[in-house]
Design a protein around this nucleic acid. Structure first.
Lengths: 146, 146
DNA sequence: ACTCAAAGTTAGATAAATCTAACTGTAAAA
DNA sequence: TTTTACAGTTAGATTTATCTAACTTTGAGT
C-alpha cells in the first residue's frame, strides 16, 4: 500500500523472509541474518523499515511474517531471482555462482531486459518441447514498468 | 599500485573519465558530473579517492587524467561494459537500455558469469559468419578483439 | 519459581555516496 | 586591466547500511 520504493537491501531482506517461510514455515531474525551474512541488529533495522511500509508483520521478540502486499512483492522478486538463475545456468554458469549473481542482478535490471531474458529462456523451452512433444501454450506475460 | 578495492561508484567515475578522454581528449569535472547525473562536488570527492589510489592525476582547477594503472583498470571496466552491452543487444534489448543495464551489471557479475557471457557472444559471431561466408578454416578471429 | 543462555532489541559509531551552500580560481569580454 | 561568469573546491548535512556493545525478553532445565 505504502508504495515507498524498496532499496536493493530491503528487497533482499523481504525476499529472504519469504524464502525462509517457504522453507521452514518460520522466518527468525537470527536465520535471516545468517542467510544474508549480516548481524541481527541489521535485520532488526530492516524489519522496522519493512513494517513501516506495510510489507511485514512481527510481534515483538518473535518471528517475521509477510503481509499480503509483502507476499505479493516478495513473490515478484523471487520470480525474478528464479528466472535469472535459470538463465545463467542455461549459459553454463555453475549453480552456486548463478544463485549469487542472480541475487545481484535481480535488483538492477530494467523491465525490458528482464522481458528479453524471459523470451530467451522460455520460448527455448517451448521450442525444444515442441520438437519432442506437442506445441506448448503461448506466453503473453508482461513485466512491470520500472 | 595501491590496490585498495574500488567501489561500484568509483568504478563508474573511473570509467567515465576514460570514456570522456577517448571521446573528447579531456575529462572535465563538469562533464563527468553531467554524464553520470550527479553534481560537481560528488565528482570532486570521488577524484580525491581515485587520486589517493593512484588511478587519476589532476592539476588543481583543471581536467582529470588517468595514470597508467588507472588506464589499465578503466580499460578493463570498459571492456566489461562493451561485452555486456553487446550481449544484451544480442538478446534484443534496445541500445539505450542495454547501455544502462550494462553499466549496472559491469560491477557485480562474477568472473565465471562474465566468462560464460563471453563464450555466448563470441563463438556465436564465428558461427554466424561461417554460415554466411565460406568455411573460414583456421582463419581465426579478426572480429573479436579483446 | 528461578536461573541463565539464546534470541531479539536499542543505541550509538562508522563508512560510503550523495546533496546544497558558500567559497576560490581562471579566463574571456568589456 | 578590471570585471565577472563559470568551473572547480570545500564544508557540512543527509541517507542508507552496516557494525559493536549493552540491554531486554523468552523459555528450557533445574
Amino acid at each position: 500500500m505504502d508504495h515507498t520504493k524498496l532499496t536493493q537491501s530491503l528487497e533482499d531482506y523481504l525476499e529472504m523472509v519469504h524464502m525462509l517461510r517457504l522453507a521452514n514455515g518460520l522466518a527468525r531474525v537470527k536465520d535471516i541474518a545468517a542467510a544474508l551474512g549480516v548481524k541481527m541488529p541489521s535485520v532488526a533495522k530492516a524489519m522496522v523499515e519493512l513494517k513501516k511500509m506495510g510489507l511485514v508483520r512481527q510481534e515483538p521478540y518473535s518471528g517475521v511474517e509477510l503481509t499480503e502486499e509483502g507476499e505479493r512483492v516478495a513473490a515478484m522478486i523471487l520470480n525474478r531471482h528464479i528466472l535469472l538463475k535459470g538463465f545463467l545456468i542455461k549459459l553454463g554458469v555453475s549453480e552456486a555462482i548463478a544463485d549469487k549473481d542472480a541475487c545481484s542482478m535481480e535488483h538492477i535490471l530494467s523491465a525490458e531486459t528482464l522481458g528479453k531474458i524471459e523470451d530467451f529462456v522460455k520460448p527455448t523451452d517451448a521450442i525444444s518441447s515442441a520438437k519432442k512433444l506437442k506445441p506448448a501454450a503461448k506466453n503473453g506475460k508482461k513485466a512491470g514498468e520500472k
